[in-house]
Design a protein around this nucleic acid. Sequence first.
DNA 1: GTTAGCACTCAAAACAGGGGAGTGCTAATA
DNA 2: TATTAGCACTCCCCTGTTTTGAGTGCTAAC
Lengths: 349, 349
Amino acid sequence: MAVDTSLSERKLIILKAIIQNYLETGEPVGSRTLSKYTELNLSSATIRNEMADLEDLGYIFQPHTSAGRIPSDKGYRLYVDMLMEEKEQEITEREDAMLEKADKVEKVLQQAAKVLASNTNYATMVSAPMNSRNTLKFIQLSQVDEEQIVAVIVLGGNVIKNKIIEVGETLSNETLLKLNMLLNTTLNGMSIDQITLGLIARLKEQAGIHSEVIGHVLDAVAEIIHVEDDMKIYTSGTTNIFKYPELSDKQSAQEIISAFEEKQQLEDLVTETLASGDDHAIQVYIGDEAPVKNMKDCSVVTATYELGEGMKGTIGIIGPKRMDYEHVMKTLKTLQSELDAIYNKNPKE
Amino acid sequence: MAVDTSLSERKLIILKAIIQNYLETGEPVGSRTLSKYTELNLSSATIRNEMADLEDLGYIFQPHTSAGRIPSDKGYRLYVDMLMEEKEQEITEREDAMLEKADKVEKVLQQAAKVLASNTNYATMVSAPMNSRNTLKFIQLSQVDEEQIVAVIVLGGNVIKNKIIEVGETLSNETLLKLNMLLNTTLNGMSIDQITLGLIARLKEQAGIHSEVIGHVLDAVAEIIHVEDDMKIYTSGTTNIFKYPELSDKQSAQEIISAFEEKQQLEDLVTETLASGDDHAIQVYIGDEAPVKNMKDCSVVTATYELGEGMKGTIGIIGPKRMDYEHVMKTLKTLQSELDAIYNKNPKE
DNA sequence: GTTAGCACTCAAAACAGGGGAGTGCTAATA
DNA sequence: TATTAGCACTCCCCTGTTTTGAGTGCTAAC
């Protein structure tokens, strides 16, 4: 990224001015406007020369001749990387109140998406934490009726899952007790990745004639992971995109909204975010950079949060390229630590 | 509804022709078009006279002078009530295959919404069955760690819910066993409405010093009903509305899409559908008739399905007023009996 | 009762012109 | 040498006007 060094101080100032102005107005910005807007007192002509240079370098472009300039993706990139000053002031207190104790994780997350959307006026998504790296805390088998038992599986962080298992015979109480003992002593505290084939074989051996049940239980465990694989994603404020003319033509709107409806694409986004980079960094995808093709006309800002024990989820904001990056990143950061805090302080809620 | 009798045979034919033509093309239909389109050989002039009458009666109207006529809500109403001939032929076999055994109810319903959407090109929703009138099948308390027990509650139809309960003390195995016995013998097979205050008092009395736990469990049961109250709704094909110009202007599109996002409005729709009328009838709401204000420019067609034991859900299609009512109603009927069949034949899947 | 014909209406498309914001270039200026 | 003023030019966009054409209502003839 040696590109930036090739830009003079003045060019940077002008570029920054162009972008900031464009973020506010959404209109192409011309040289005259800039000559007043910027502190360095230059005539429009000078600015024009600089702008021509910037255009040659690919940071800005004209939608058509005799229009002002608007930032290119490359320009935005430079902006978020270097030019943007973080306005750290006034850490918002409001959200504290909004995220009041909702008693279920899902509720909290849905709420978070909502708060975020109303706070930013963009479309938002929050993915529920995945428990791939989670630990088994407790397993309980119980007879429901003659032919069915239910396996209750509690994961770290008190995520509970159940699965009905069909059994041909009625199992005696002692048998169930024994199996429960066996399962819990062996598997308790184990990470899901730690359950190896060898371990399974050993378990089955100890279960004797009931090895089949053990098999079913482990299948259930596996399936639970699998089920969790198609992750839950909460969205809000989708229709906010109609507020931005450049996104609200039929074509774009349809693409973006269907990306939100078929969660598959959002899942890709989450996966990408979780995979790449530092845990608590904020990531910014501009245009094509996003791993979601339908969002080529948008910018996407994401953050990762953590509910302890390696359960991570993603928060994301989707808006026009000319989004208010500073505000968004600040808000996202706040919410991120918000979520981090709530659950690390109070994991049972 | 004596209105219809006042219409001559010929007027009915013409009205029907107008509507059918409009359904296909989406364009206002004029007298010339009709004079060829209809079998009764009449000149455009004659048709014009009849159309003038129909307009006076409120069945059709002109979007502006010198445009063709389009059906009014009243016209559509008459059409779906009387004029439309059911094309019963070729009961679709395809869907059978599509709704292949998904092993979770949610999956099936989500799938159903998808199939429906791709089949009709409209927006669709499927509500998960509510279990308000459901019965308790099984309750199991288990100790998770020193301070927590988990209550697993199985409802009829094998809907499983759990709830972590905080207890100050560690309960002995015998105590748990006793409580489990007590809960199951007393509550087993009961409908949720049948658990009265008197019953609760009696339970607590029998539980003695552990009455508090019983209280928590019952709270959990109550909460589970409550949680289920904000029902799950699956949607698909929201963006199909962009296919219909009359709905895809910013204003309408935004309204409809946000109705789909904030599920509250869809819930109203479901409630209305479930409340009103015969179980297996198909209901058609045209324009204002729908209980959802955001859909005043749409038509909504709904059906109720049943998963046995009084658990009912709703399937709905939302499209433009000029939707292909016949196809939609037929498809809906098929899917309805599809769902009915799957779960009544094979309730455990 | 039906039809042909005609005058009329009005939305939408096609067209034309003016205004204006913005540019690039050149020549003058500090 | 960098900056600026000035000027010609471009081209979007707005506005108003015209044209077109589909469709109607009405009247008179069949």
